[in-house]
């Protein structure tokens, strides 16, 4: 695992980008996160996570064309990079290893 481990929310944002696909920008990413977690998501937090992920080289972005329904503002489309995919797989493997063999986490009772 890399020295800069992924935060919980960062990992969720990366997975949401992958689920949304080509059209991934703030709104669909936030909707995906809301649908999965059942909680309200702040767009500012999504962009803060995206900035961090971009700084780590896990996400790349491009600016789309301005659209009228957004008051003439452009969308910022995001894509998970190859490094980002590797990081997700590595995090998944680590979490699964840690999960395995924990009786407290089986059966669904706290």
């Amino acid at each position: 695992m890399s020295r800069e481990a992924l935060g919980n929310f960062e990992l969720m944002v990366l997975l949401a980008i992958l689920r949304v696909g080509e059209d991934a920008y703030g709104v669909p990413i936030a909707r995906e996160l809301e649908a999965s977690s059942g909680k309200d998501v702040l767009l500012g937090s999504v962009y803060a996570a995206l900035d961090r992920l971009e700084a780590k080289g896990l996400v790349s972005s491009r600016v789309g064309d301005p659209t009228p329904e957004r008051g003439g503002r452009a969308k910022k489309y995001c894509k998970v990079t190859a490094k980002g995919l590797r990081e997700i797989r590595e995090t998944q493997r680590t979490l699964v290893r840690l999960w395995r063999g924990l009786p407290e986490l089986h059966g669904g009772t706290a």
Binding site: A30, L43, G44, P66, G71, A74
Partner: peptide, 12 residues
């Protein structure tokens, strides 16, 4: 506030 965030808030 970055334009992309403003645009997303306006849209949603």
């Amino acid at each position: 506030v970055p334009q992309a965030v403003v645009g997303d808030i306006v849209e949603e």
